[in-house]
Amino acid sequence: MKNYKNIFRKITISITLISIGFLSGCNSNDPKKEDTPELITKATLTFTPIGGGSSVVVSATDPDGDGVQDIAVDGDINLVSDTDYTLTITLINELAAPTDPAYDISAEVAEEGAEHIFFFGWTNNVFYNPTGNGNIDNRSDGINYNDSDENGLPIGLSTNWSTSVNTASGKFRVILKHQPDLKSPTSTSSDGETDLDIEFVINIL
């Protein structure tokens, strides 16, 4: 009987000692601030006239990321009729410092071009070339992509557009899809995960 009590006492003492040891060593619960490279807070579309002239710049910003505030668009896309433009898309994360590699997400998209593709859609024949309404609803509809990935498939960070001869107004939508192992000449805007989906009003003046 004495023996068991002895064992029991020893266990109790060691448990107490172990617990004290653990408790005193575990006070570092201060979290470190993470970088957030996937967070896109601002998407900028720059339409540069190929024949020279000033660029048209519009952007969509979502300063609160996953917060309840909606994305805000800073204006309409106002293009001159019967003009050729190059559209470049820049994606940035304003939560990161501009010197941080996490700041420029379009560079990441270019690097991972084989997994990414932009789709475009518009209404009311605002463009003379490409014709139609874009490849969001139908992949085979024409888009003038200027860039391509290692497999020769388009990416869409840079595209060419010719505005309609007549004035017109409509909507212009840009979708960026992440399609790991899915991207192909026929993969569509409903395949993969959406990284970007924004819409602007477009006016051809």
Partner: peptide, 8 residues
């Protein structure tokens, strides 16, 4: 509710 961010 519904919120819009850059992904949709």
């Amino acid at each position: 509710g519904i919120t819009k961010n850059v992904r949709g």
